[in-house]
């Protein structure tokens, strides 16, 4: 464990608390893509199946349980509790275009052709693009509540912080994980446009609005 990874994980935790806080205080999931949230459940379940056969640490164990449980809870909030506040007509990204290629790529580019290993690889590829329905929705509406942008910024910071973590691990532990690194770079790259608007507008106290 190094500082970058810890800060990345804490940022990930923070993003989830911000999202739940947003939904509960505004009593609405307006502006949140159900498809992206459903993809995250898929990602966590596929990746953390190793809870059943691999012990890493208490930290790792509780974080995995938390990410699975909280993502399922968010789906529940969106699907049942605050269902009327979700507008499927603006959440129209075709998730097949993300899941399909992630399945195919994980069957081709993996470390070992084993079921759980392919599931892990699939989860890495799917996570890289899981934010796209959310960003697509943002693009469509052209604006977002400030709290929603804080959620996205914390989520983007999480993967961004994993990059210095990999560099650090390369020098200190002499290990590289090319699949995680390539997918992580893609994932972070997807946030660049968002980060630009976030830093130049939201952090200056303005509303998140995209140019028409």
């Amino acid at each position: 464990m190094n500082l970058f990874r810890l800060l990345g994980d804490l940022s990930h935790l923070a993003s989830i608390f911000i999202l739940i806080h947003k939904i509960q205080t505004t009593r609405s999931c307006r502006g949140i893509s159900f498809q992206t949230q459903a993809l995250y459940v898929t990602v966590f379940v596929a990746r953390y199946i190793d809870l059943f056969f691999r012990w890493i640490s208490l930290y790792n164990f509780f974080m995995k349980i938390f990410f699975i449980a909280s993502s399922v809870y968010i789906l529940y909030l969106m699907k049942y509790r605050y269902r009327p506040t979700h507008d499927p007509s603006i959440d129209t990204f075709k998730v097949e275009y993300l899941v399909g290629p992630a399945v195919v790529l994980s069957l081709i580019f993996n470390y070992k052709f084993e079921f759980t290993e392919i599931l892990w690889t699939f989860s890495i590829y799917l996570e890289a693009v899981a934010i796209l329905p959310q960003l697509f929705m943002l693009q469509r509406t052209g604006e977002a509540e400030t709290i929603t942008t804080h959620y996205l910024a914390a989520l983007g910071a999480y993967r961004a912080l994993y990059i210095p973590n990999w560099i650090y691990r390369y020098f200190t532990e002499d290990v590289v994980d090319p699949i995680a690194i390539v997918a992580g770079l893609v994932q972070t790259g997807l946030y660049l446009d968002f980060f630009y608007v976030y830093f130049t507008k939201v952090l200056q106290g303005q509303k998140f609005e995209l140019p028409a």
Partner: peptide
């Protein structure tokens, strides 16, 4: 440099 074998990251 070796490829990481266990997946110890989240």
């Amino acid at each position: 440099t070796e490829r990481r074998k266990g997946h110890d990251e989240l």
